Amino acid sequence: MSGNRPGVESPQHSRPTVTPKRINVAISPEMVRALENVITREGITLTEALRRLVGYGDFVYRAIKEGGEQLTVTGPDGTREVILL
Rank of each mutant, 00 (worst) to 15 (best):
M1Y: 09
M1A: 13
N4M: 13
R5K: 15
R5S: 08
V8M: 09
P11D: 00
S14M: 10
R15F: 06
R15Q: 11
R15P: 00
T17K: 14
T19C: 04
I23E: 03
N24K: 13
N24V: 09
V25L: 14
A26D: 12
I27H: 05
I27F: 07
S28N: 12
P29H: 08
E30S: 12
M31S: 14
M31P: 03
V32I: 13
V32F: 01
R33T: 11
R33W: 04
A34W: 04
A34S: 13
A34F: 07
E36F: 00
N37S: 08
N37D: 15
N37G: 09
I39G: 01
T40Y: 12
E42T: 07
G43W: 06
L46T: 14
L46R: 15
L50I: 14
G55Q: 06
G57I: 06
D58M: 11
D58L: 12
D58I: 08
V60S: 00
V60M: 01
V60E: 00
Y61C: 02
R62H: 11
A63L: 15
A63E: 15
A63H: 11
K65R: 15
G68K: 01
G68C: 05
E69D: 09
Q70N: 08
L71I: 10
V73N: 07
T74G: 05
P76V: 10
P76E: 15
D77E: 11
G78A: 07
G78D: 08
T79I: 10
R80H: 14
V82W: 02
I83N: 11
L84S: 05
